[in-house]
Write a protein that binds this DNA or RNA. Sequence first.
DNA 1: TATCCTAATACGGAAACCCGTAAAGTTTTA
DNA 2: TAAAACTTTACGGGTTTCCGTATTAGGATA
Lengths: 221, 221
Amino acid sequence: MFKKVLVVDDHDVVNEGVLRVLKSNNINNVVKAQYCDEAFLKIKNAALNNQPFDLLISDLSFKEDYKENKLKSGEDLVAAIKPEYPNLAVIIYSMEERLQKVRTLINTSGVNAYVCKGRKGAFELSIALTQVAKNKLYLSPQVQNALNKKNDLEIDDYDIELIKNLSLGLSQVEISTLFKTQNIAPSSLSSIEKRINKLKDIFKANNTIHLVSIVKDLGLI
Amino acid sequence: MFKKVLVVDDHDVVNEGVLRVLKSNNINNVVKAQYCDEAFLKIKNAALNNQPFDLLISDLSFKEDYKENKLKSGEDLVAAIKPEYPNLAVIIYSMEERLQKVRTLINTSGVNAYVCKGRKGAFELSIALTQVAKNKLYLSPQVQNALNKKNDLEIDDYDIELIKNLSLGLSQVEISTLFKTQNIAPSSLSSIEKRINKLKDIFKANNTIHLVSIVKDLGLI
DNA sequence: TATCCTAATACGGAAACCCGTAAAGTTTTA
DNA sequence: TAAAACTTTACGGGTTTCCGTATTAGGATA
């Protein structure tokens, strides 16, 4: 089982809760962080002092506040950490249930487990601990099929970004030029139209206002 | 200070965390619930057994699962409980930061404190405990100005109805004909256009999508 | 390399929306 | 009661969005 664990979540109450789960698994050497940059530094320092962490449990989304952070999300943190410390096991513990997100975290970032925050979060976190300790992958039931199917209905970060910009009041041409400057592809007006169309289809929206409204209600943006 | 507390949140990890906060305030008689209906029954039973709760700490949003629940949200729970047990203090502990929501909870549901989940959630929850114990109201800094009348803008029910219909995906002509059948005046397309224009002006929205998005964020619809 | 397939882009007409102005209808008030 | 002020409706022309179709680019396959 793991000896030294870093828990990263911006909500202190959640951090406390995760700590309890670890305690009940007889893991007592636990450090907390509320920012990704802070977590990054703690991992580096621990390694330098020859007392490295062997497990990282991190949230994905972090609310920004007065503190400037270079790493703004759990994805950023993992991307910064994993290449340097490939032996550090990583468990993601997040509200996010989009399969696409889970898939890329597992496949390209080398995350070892993905646990969804929910009614049984503590239980699943415990299982994840034991599985990952045995070098096995663990996924919460909600996202089990992240790896099997290529779910066409699945929406990705591009879609979210697109809808977010719509909700911010940008016109489709404005989004097109914005994407061009940000090197986000596809960026043509036509492609943006087409994508919006697809999304309206997926979410059964009558028009773009409706689409944005639905996606806001779902909490995706 | 409070003797017997019920904590209601669908995330078990959060429940654990809140429990720790209570412990550190020397409150040890704590019961947890993960569903609103469950919470409702526990409150009723406790009262019947002459061992009533004197504090309820509840989340607002609960994910639905296989269990059928009559009370689907923290608002529902409070609305069901408060009239019957007006002496039961209530602290809301939620991600939600929309002022309109906070306002109605405080003003019409008689909630005693509103704490936002966030980096300092534990800290603020502690303060809320002591304040509410002294019969004082507590609001997290993020929502402090929920009660300032300042936020009452120059918009009326007609505007809300209009924007709500937009968010439901109706086109402007559809809204026009709908208003005609409902005898809501003004109902001409031109007037509706004009009203939307005024609202875009008030809320500094670039276009109608933006308008709906802003008004949703404000919790007005 | 040639072929196939899919994703991205381009384009054009129709519909919806935007916006200013003008007319008609109501209410206020002098 | 008439003028003024405001609200509602009407209308026209410009812009954006919508939607189907056609073309192009790029990657996979054989």
